[in-house]
Amino acid sequence: MAKNILERAVDWGRRKSPWIIHFNAGACNGCDIEVVDALTPRYDLERFGILQQGTPRHSDVLVCTGAVTLQTRDRLKQIYEQMPEPKFVVAVGTCACTGGIFDGCYCVSGGIDSVIPVDAYVPGCAARPEAIIDAVVKLLSALEAAQKAEPSEQ
């Protein structure tokens, strides 16, 4: 069954207004600086409707940096569960993708996907702001394709 106009309007809104929350799961701060850099007037993410929110309740995209340490594992899970559906996760930086050079360390449980499901990976040490913006835009176009393929909720 095809989607009705209301469902399509909400789908459109989801693609055009992804609000992000930034979480440091144990990064060296390199990728965090780049995430902050991407939000500055020079790159101006508000062009794509991206706003940074302070609380997980308002956010759609969880932007995670760093390998997940055992200290932050439960917090990361908690923050993810506090976000309302539908939600997406972007792993920024090599450590967030795979654990990087910290993989196998006694206090590290691996990349972000060892704890929560990840929708987009941005490799790089540190990931460049252009790469982060590219990942978010690609995530949104993948979302559009998925929305077109999925059947109506009714």
Binding site: G13, R14, K16, S17, P41, D44
Partner: peptide, 22 residues
């Protein structure tokens, strides 16, 4: 900055309407 597109507040509003309410 360049700033948001003209339909941005509408998109924000529709998106929030379609999200889970906790």
């Amino acid at each position: 900055r360049r700033g948001p597109r003209w339909y941005q507040p509408l998109a924000d509003f529709l998106k929030l309407l379609g999200k889970e309410t906790i």
